[in-house]
Design a protein around this nucleic acid. Structure first.
Length: 842
RNA sequence: GCGGACGUGGCGAAACUGGUAGACGCACGGGACUUAAAAUCCCUCGCCCCUACGGGCAUGCGGGUUCGAGUCCCGCCGUCCGCACCA
C-alpha cells in the first residue's frame, strides 16, 4: 500500500488552489459573508510556531465556513513598518525597505507551504505607499475633525541612538540597544484624542459578548473610569503671606471619597506640581526633595519597597466646610502629576497610603466611617478602613451611608461653587509621533507664516525618500537635504516637512478594513467594507489585549465619527490563542541548548548529560525554538496542521514535541490507508451503527469547530476513524470514508484533496459542502443506565430510551451486584433519573 | 498590593444545565507479523489490597450542601497572567 506523499501532494494542490483562485473572496456573492482574520505578522524574516498555530486555527474555521455555505474573506498581509528594519539597516547596511520586502517574500513562501486558504489577491504591506498614503488621508480626516492635536510632552530619549524609545524599550532606565541612560525630554508630539472616546470604548465592551472576559476586563481596567469630586482648597492668607506663593489662591484636588472629607488631615501635591516647582525656585530644600523624588525608580519592585516621603511646604489650606480648620500641604513622592489634578486630599483613617504617610509624619488620623459602633474619632489601627458603613464625626453627614454622603458632599460643593462632581480616566491620549524613518510620514508641513499646514490630499501620498543613510544615529528624515524642505502649500513660502512618522500601531488600526475593500483612489469603499465588517472571528495572541485591540477599536469609532464608515466595533468575535512551548535544556555548565543539540538526554557534541528544564514559551534566549520550515518539509503541511490542533485546548499553551508531530504524521498516513481503495468486495448490507456514528460525529465536529474547540474535534475524528477501520466492508462504510474526508478537510486539506480525487469525486473538496446531518440518527433508542448504591457505581444496565421509572427501579434492584451490596437490607429510598441512573440509598 | 485564570494518571487532556471520572492522543510495557528491523495490527496501562472473584482510595488541601460533587458554597495552599503609589 502506498504512503501519502505529502511533498508532492502539498505542492500539487497548493498550485491548483492558486490557479483556480479557490479562496478569493467575492464582494458580490449573494451568500452570507464571513470574515475570518488572524493578526497579521511583522515580517521579521521567518515564521515561527506561534504563527503556524494561529494561522492553522483561522484556516480551519475559514475552510469550515466555506463548506457551510458562507462567502469567506480570509486575507493575509504584513505589518511591515517598525524598528527592526532600521536596526538591520544600521547593522547590515541594507535599506529597511529592501530588508522588509525580502523578509516578506521568504515568509510568504513559508505560509504558502502550509496550504492556508488565503485570498492572496488582497495581500497588503503597510510600508507600501499604496497603503500608508491612504492612512495619511485618514489622519487628515481626523485632524479636520479635531481628533488630532499637537502638544509638548515628555518622552524617553536615548541620547546615543538619538531617538525616542517606547516604555517597553527602556530597561532599568537604560536604552535597550545602546545601554545609555535614558533622558526625559520635552518634544512636540502629535496626539490622537482617544480620551474623547473613553466612554464609548468602555460601554462598547459590554456589546462584545464573543470576546474573552479577560480581555474585556483588561481593557476596562486600562480605560480606568473613576468618579468623584474635583474641588479646591483655598490657601490660607495668613500663613501664605510669608510664603512666596501668596498669590496662588487654590489647590485643586480630586477624590473618589468626598464623603470622607471631614477625615482629611493633609493635602499632598506631586513633585512636578506647579506649586512644588514654584516653591523649589526659592527653596533649596524643596528643590532637593523634588530631585530625590525623580531619582526614585519606577519598577514594580522599587515601588513596592519605596517609602512614602513628604516635604512640608509650610503652606496651609482651609477646609471647605470650616474656614478655621487649617490643613498642611506636603509635596509627596506618591502623588502623580498626570492623574487627576496632581494633588490629593489625605484621609488617613480610610486610605492605606494616607495612613502610612500620616503615621510617619505624626498627622491626625480621624475616623469618619464606622462599620460598627466604633465611633471613636481617634483611629488607632494600622489598617485603613475602606469598606462600607455610616458616617461619624462628620457634621451634617453623620449617619449617612458612604454612597449618600458622597452625593451630599458633591451637591454642596457644586452649590457652593467650590467643587464639581467629575469623572477621571486612567486612559491617556495616544501619542503617535515617532522620530523614526521606517513609518508612515505624518502629512503635515510647518510654515513660519501659516503654522501647521496639512498636506493637501491631492499631494498624497507623502512618500518616504529612498536615499537615506543609517551610518549616523537619529532620524534620517531629519537630516535629509531635500525631502525635508518644501514650499508651504498655503503661502508658497519656505517651509519644513514634519519628519516624525506615525506609531506602527496606527498601521494595524485599520488594515482589516483595507482587506475588505482596497480601491486605488481611496482608503476603502464604504459600502463594500460594510458588507464584510465587523470581522466575525479575529484570532491572535493575548499580548495585544490592550494596545492593538484598543487602538483599532478607537480608530474604527473615529472613522465612524468622521463619516467614513458606519461600524462601531471592528471585531465581533475575538479569540486569544495560547503559545507554543517546548522543554528547555542546559549543559552541565548551565548554557542553554537547542533541541537539536540534544539526543537521549546527552549533548550530541560532547556526550555530557543534559539537564531538562521546564516547558516554556519558545524563545531565542532559552534556545528552545523549533523552526517550522524543516518540520513541514519532513512531515508535510497536514501533519503539522493536525498537531497544532490536537491535544491542547487552543487557548492554552501547546507543548511542542517530536513525539507529538510523529503521532500526527502517523494519523495522516492512517487516514490515507483508510481512504485508498483496496479493491476488497463491498457488500450492500447496511451498517446502521456506523451510519449513526458518522452523523453524530458530523454534528459534533461542526459545533466543536464553531466553538474553536479543535482538540475535541480531533478526538472525535480519531474515534470515527477507528470505528470505520473496524467496520466490515459495505456501501455504508464507503460512504463513511467519504464523509470522514469532508470532516477532516478543513484540518488536513492536502490529504483530503488527494484522497477525494483518488476516490473519483468531482471537483475540489475545498469546494464541497459540509455533510448534512439527519437529526433522527442523532437520537439513541437505547441508553446505558448507571446503577449506584449510596452513590457508588455497582452496575450498569441497558434500557430503552425513555423507559419508565418503575421499570428502571425494578431492573436496578434485580441486579445481582446490587443484591450483593445490599446484603438483604431494605432500600430507604431510590432516586431514579430517567435515561441516566438509579441510585439506591440503603 | 489590586484584579483575573488555573490546579484531574508518567505527560497533553475529556467529562452536557450536579448524575458511570480519566474519552482521545503521547509515552511506557507485552504480543502478532518478519530471518531481522522498520512499518502495521492487537492487548495492558490512576493508586492500593487480592491468585482470582471482588473490594478500598482517588480530580491541590480542609470543611459544607446533596440520594449523588471534578462541577455548587466557605476557608486554606500552590502556579501562571495582567495592572500597579490611579487618590
Amino acid at each position: 500500500m502506498s504512503r501519502f506523499n505529502a511533498l508532492t501532494a502539498d505542492a500539487k494542490w497548493q498550485a491548483v488552489w492558486d490557479e483556480r483562485a479557490t479562496f478569493a473572496a467575492d464582494d458580490a456573492s449573494p451568500k452570507p459573508k464571513s470574515y475570518v482574520l488572524e493578526m497579521f505578522p511583522y515580517p521579521s524574516g521567518k515564521i515561527h510556531m506561534g504563527h503556524v498555530r494561529n494561522y492553522t486555527m483561522g484556516d480551519v474555521l475559514a475552510r469550515f465556513r466555506r463548506m457551510t455555505g458562507h462567502e469567506v474573506l480570509h486575507p493575509m498581509g504584513w505589518d511591515a513598518f517598525g524598528m527592526p528594519a532600521e536596526n538591520a539597516a544600521m547593522e547590515k547596511g541594507v535599506h529597511p525597505g529592501a530588508w522588509t520586502y525580502q523578509n516578506i517574500a521568504a515568509m510568504k513562501a513559508q505560509l504558502k507551504r502550509l496550504g492556508f486558504a488565503l485570498d492572496w489577491s488582497r495581500e497588503l504591506a503597510t510600508c507600501d505607499p499604496g497603503y500608508y498614503g491612504h492612512e495619511q488621508a485618514l489622519f487628515l480626516d481626523l485632524l479636520a475633525a479635531g481628533l488630532v492635536y499637537r502638544k509638548e510632552s515628555a518622552v524617553n530619549w536615548d541620547p546615543v541612538d538619538m531617538t525616542v524609545l517606547a516604555n517597553e524599550q527602556v530597561i532599568d532606565g537604560r536604552g535597550w540597544r545602546s545601554a545609555a541612560v535614558v533622558e526625559k525630554r520635552k518634544l512636540s508630539q502629535w496626539f490622537l484624542k482617544i480620551t474623547d472616546f473613553a466612554d464609548e470604548l468602555l460601554d462598547g465592551l459590554s456589546t462584545l459578548d464573543q470576546w474573552p472576559d479577560k480581555v474585556r476586563l483588561m481593557q476596562e481596567n486600562w480605560i480606568g473610569k473613576s468618579e468623584g469630586l474635583t474641588f479646591g482648597f483655598t490657601v490660607a492668607d495668613d500663613v501664605s503671606a510669608t510664603s512666596p506663593i501668596a498669590d496662588e489662591r487654590r489647590i485643586a484636588v480630586y477624590s473618589t471619597r468626598p464623603d470622607t472629607i471631614f477625615g482629611a488631615s493633609f493635602v499632598a501635591v506631586a513633585a512636578d506640581h506647579p506649586i512644588a516647582l514654584e516653591l523649589a525656585a526659592v527653596n533649596a530644600d524643596a528643590a532637593g526633595f523634588i530631585e530625590q523624588c525623580k531619582a526614585g525608580g519606577t519598577t514594580a519592585a522599587e515601588l513596592e519597597t519605596q517609602e512614602k516621603l513628604g516635604f512640608d511646604t509650610g503652606l496651609k489650606v482651609r477646609h471647605p466646610f470650616d474656614s478655621g480648620w487649617m490643613l498642611p500641604v506636603f509635596i509627596a513622592n506618591f502623588v502623580l502629576m498626570d492623574y487627576g489634578t496632581g494633588a490629593v486630599m489625605g484621609v488617613p483613617a480610610h486610605d492605606q497610603r494616607d495612613l502610612d504617610f500620616a503615621r510617619k509624619y505624626g498627622l491626625e488620623v480621624r475616623r469618619v466611617v464606622a462599620d460598627d459602633d466604633a465611633a471613636d474619632p481617634v483611629f488607632a489601627g494600622e489598617e485603613a478602613y475602606t469598606g462600607p458603613g455610616r458616617l461619624v464625626n462628620s457634621a451634617f453627614l453623620d449617619g449617612l451611608s458612604v454612597t449618600d454622603a458622597k452625593r451630599a458632599v458633591i451637591e454642596r460643593a457644586e452649590a457652593g461653587g467650590w467643587g464639581q462632581g467629575s469623572t477621571v480616566w486612567r486612559l491617556r491620549d495616544w501619542g503617535v509621533s515617532r522620530q523614526r524613518y521606517w513609518g508612515t510620514p505624518i502629512p503635515i508641513i510647518h510654515c513660519e507664516a501659516c503654522g501647521v499646514v496639512p498636506v493637501p490630499k491631492e499631494q498624497l501620498p507623502v512618500v518616504l525618500p529612498e536615499d537615506v543613510s543609517f551610518d549616523v544615529p537619529g532620524n534620517p528624515l531629519d537630516r535629509h537635504p531635500s525631502w525635508k524642505h518644501v514650499a508651504c502649500p498655503s503661502c508658497g513660502g519656505a517651509a519644513r516637512r514634519e519628519t516624525d512618522t506615525l506609531d506602527t500601531f496606527v498601521n494595524s488600526s485599520w488594515y482589516f478594513i483595507r482587506f475588505a475593500s482596497q480601491p486605488e483612489d481611496q482608503p476603502f469603499d464604504r459600502a463594500v467594507a460594510e458588507q464584510w465588517l465587523p470581522v466575525g472571528q479575529y484570532i491572535g495572541g493575548v499580548e495585544h489585549a490592550i494596545l492593538h485591540l484598543l487602538y483599532a477599536r478607537f480608530w474604527t469609532r473615529a472613522l465612524r465619527r468622521v463619516g467614513r464608515i458606519d461600524v462601531a466595533e471592528p471585531f465581533a468575535g475575538l479569540f486569544t490563542q495560547g503559545m507554543v512551548t517546548h522543554e528547555t535544556y542546559q549543559d552541565p555548565a548551565g548554557a542553554w541548548l537547542s533541541p537539536d543539540e540534544v539526543a537521549d538526554g546527552r549533548v550530541v557534541a560532547t556526550g555530557e548529560p543534559v539537564t531538562v528544564g521546564r516547558v516554556e514559551k519558545m524563545s531565542k534566549s532559552k534556545k528552545n525554538t523549533v523552526d517550522p520550515s524543516p518540520i513541514v518539509d519532513r512531515y508535510g503541511a497536514d501533519a503539522v496542521r493536525w498537531f497544532m490542533l490536537s491535544d491542547s485546548p487552543p487557548e492554552r499553551d501547546l507543548p511542542w514535541s517530536e513525539a507529538g508531530i510523529e503521532g500526527a504524521w502517523r494519523f495522516v498516513q492512517r487516514l490515507w490507508r483508510l481512504a485508498t481503495p483496496d479493491g476488497a468486495p463491498v457488500t450492500d448490507s447496511p451498517d446502521h451503527d456506523l451510519a449513526k456514528r458518522v452523523h453524530r460525529t458530523t454534528a459534533a465536529v461542526a459545533s466543536d469547530i464553531e466553538a474553536l474547540q479543535f482538540n475535541k474535534a480531533v478526538a472525535r475524528l480519531y474515534e470515527l476513524t477507528s470505528a470505520i477501520e473496524k467496520a466490515a466492508p459495505s456501501t455504508d462504510r464507503e460512504a463513511a470514508i467519504t464523509t470522514l474526508l469532508q470532516l477532516v478537510a478543513p484540518m488536513v486539506p492536502h490529504l483530503a484533496e488527494e484522497a477525494w480525487a483518488l476516490r473519483g469525486n468531482d471537483g475540489l473538496i475545498a469546494d464541497a459542502t459540509w455533510p448534512t446531518v439527519d437529526p433522527a440518527l442523532l437520537v439513541d433508542d437505547e441508553v446505558t443506565i448507571a446503577v449506584q448504591v449510596n452513590g457508588k457505581l455497582r452496575d450498569t444496565l441497558t434500557a430503552a430510551k425513555g423507559a419508565a421509572k418503575d421499570a428502571l427501579e425494578a431492573a436496578a434492584l434485580a441486579s445481582p451486584a446490587v443484591q450483593r451490596t445490599l446484603e438483604g437490607k431494605e432500600p430507604k429510598k431510590v432516586v431514579v433519573v430517567p435515561d441516566r441512573l438509579v441510585n439506591i440509598v440503603a
